[in-house]
Structure formats: C-alpha cells, structure tokens
C-alpha cells in the first residue's frame, strides 16, 4: 500500500485516497471550437506510461483536496506531491 504525502495533511495511507488519472491532461476551454481529434485526445486517449508520471489523486477520506502526485508507475516510487494549484517546473 502506497504512502502518499498529502500537501495539506501530511503522510497518509493510500486507502484514504482515490486515483484520478493523468494530471497533465488539460480540459479544452468552454465554448472553444476544437477538432474531433483534440476532443478524443482529451476524453479517451491516455498513454500507459512506464516510469515517471504526474497523476491526480483526491484525498477523499481526508481534506477532499485533489492533489498532484509524481510517481514512477513501474516502481511506485513517489518523488513529490503538489497542491492542485501549484505550478510544476
């Protein structure tokens, strides 16, 4: 079971969180004309990356904040966690 550092609450066990997928996906702006391809990429197309991955988790049984977690999908190593509004360099 993973040990995830919630930027708001501190180290917590994985079973307090729920997984939210790729954090690098940006939702297209409302009312913006976009191609089918762009929309499909947003809704469906995800890479199944091996290695470092920035992903979303929600601290569901805690502060309920969505957070970003930088994790290695192969080794489960967690390098860093960020608040939802934090810019990641």
């Amino acid at each position: 079971m993973l040990h995830i550092k919630c930027p708001h609450c501190g180290m917590r066990s994985q079973n307090e969180f729920s997984y939210g997928g790729d954090a690098s996906i940006k939702r297209p702006k409302l009312n913006k004309e976009i191609s089918n391809e762009e929309w499909d990429n947003f809704v469906y197309n995800r890479k199944s990356l091996r290695g470092k991955h920035l992903e979303l988790w929600q601290h569901l049984s805690g502060c309920r904040q969505w957070i970003k977690v930088e994790r290695d999908t192969a080794t489960h190593e967690i390098f860093n966690t960020y608040r939802a509004d934090e810019e990641i360099s």
Binding site: S18, G20, L56, Q58, L60, R64, Q65, W66, A84, D85
Partner: peptide, 9 residues
C-alpha cells in the same frame, strides 16, 4: 467528487 474536481482543477 465530480464537482470538487472541476472546482479545484
């Protein structure tokens, strides 16, 4: 959770 997702992210 859905509402929180859109509001926070």
């Amino acid at each position: 959770s859905h509402l929180e997702y859109y509001l926070q992210l």
